[in-house]
Design a protein around this nucleic acid. Sequence first.
DNA 1: CCTTGTTAGTTACATTTTCAACTATTATCC
DNA 2: GGATAATAGTTGAAAATGTAACTAACAAGG
Lengths: 144, 144
Amino acid sequence: MPSESDFDLQQFLPYLLNQAAEQASLGFQTLYKTRYGMLRTEWRVLFHLGRYGEMTAKALCDRGRLHKTKVSRAVAKLEGRRFLQRRTVPQDRRAEVLALTAAGRAAYADLHAQAQVFDRQLTAGLSPAQDQALRQALVILAKL
Amino acid sequence: MPSESDFDLQQFLPYLLNQAAEQASLGFQTLYKTRYGMLRTEWRVLFHLGRYGEMTAKALCDRGRLHKTKVSRAVAKLEGRRFLQRRTVPQDRRAEVLALTAAGRAAYADLHAQAQVFDRQLTAGLSPAQDQALRQALVILAKL
DNA sequence: CCTTGTTAGTTACATTTTCAACTATTATCC
DNA sequence: GGATAATAGTTGAAAATGTAACTAACAAGG
């Protein structure tokens, strides 16, 4: 029988995941925030476009599991800051293909490099085996 | 030299953690939302008080890594729904000790039991070794 | 073609979160 | 003791998020 005292909040996986995620996001967040005035969604949009090439907002939503309103606003902001451009395609005039500008690619390259450094710092306290096990489990849980 | 193509967004730990955390929170969230009309912070306050006994808002902030405004509002809401009571202590009239009511304890017992079930479902796709490794790594990353 | 349904994306509004300022009380230290 | 700082908690305004409704364009079936 499950008692009330053998279940620690720190044993509850959603809680543990959130704490770890928050802690992990903290440092990098300040980076793209202070350096480029970006929000998390903007950073993700930038990353997706930088990493996987130009695509529509819909594709971004699917790939990044982002809600379309978030993407819509992030794209508007990135466009305002000249990090990306929209291009309507004749085949479907509802959709707009999003592509990074030179400034956008530069920001991506910078943040991308920082992300790799940051990632290594994060896992510095973990053994390689722990690191690998962690990522494997996370991929399963995230259903990626 | 770090190239631009060997670093996937899904390899970036903060991203991976966030995806997993979001996915993991989803199911349980609907539970305390629909059943008790609670927000995440309220659920956490309830859990902390239920699990660790009565304490001040400050203690809650420290233990749960919550911001004091969040706690203040969550406590007000839980008090309004008669899930907890405040008690001023003569030693320090700034602080208020928070204690669950019978209704609060009942809600905690219910959600607590559900949480255990939910936790097991979550990790059903993981081997016991994977599960253990994951939690260990998360505790390190969360700096708990 | 033309009604109906679907999809891409935006906008408006309510809810939540964040940040800064505020009150009231206690601690510090000259 | 009395000024100053620090702490517990609240509140208001701004920013961000979520939800739903909306526009515009395409698709499909009759």
